[in-house]
């Protein structure tokens, strides 16, 4: 397992798996709670499955579901990459 410096989910390239470290204070508490319910909680493994160009929302697999997160949300999720696909 290669430990790389902490970043946010938006910075993850396609095929990169990461572990969520936490959330930035800028994230609304209700949105944070919803993300956690969907599986984006501290310690969860998230795989960036698609990273379309031109700033389109990226796709992340968490648990057994895939979600698209727009930049403003994904930037608030602090994570560190662990493996490549």
């Amino acid at each position: 397992m290669s430990q790389i410096q902490c970043a946010n989910l938006w910075q993850m390239k396609r095929g990169i798996q990461s572990v969520i470290e936490g959330f930035t204070p800028a994230l609304d508490a209700a949105v944070k709670a919803r993300l956690e319910e969907l599986g984006f909680h501290q310690g969860a493994r998230v795989l960036c499955t698609q990273a379309p160009r031109l700033g389109a929302p990226k796709l992340y697999k968490v648990g057994n579901a895939v979600y698209s997160l727009e930049k403003t949300i994904a930037e608030c999720v602090i994570a560190h990459p662990v493996t490549s696909e």
Binding site: L47, T49, Q50, P52, R53, L54, A56, L59, K61, N64, V66
Partner: peptide, 24 residues
Amino acid sequence: GPKGDYLLLVHNRADQFFLSTLTG
């Protein structure tokens, strides 16, 4: 629940096509 990541494989192939800059 069910085991394995079969869902990801099925999703990914289709998403690569439908979400890529050119083919998407």
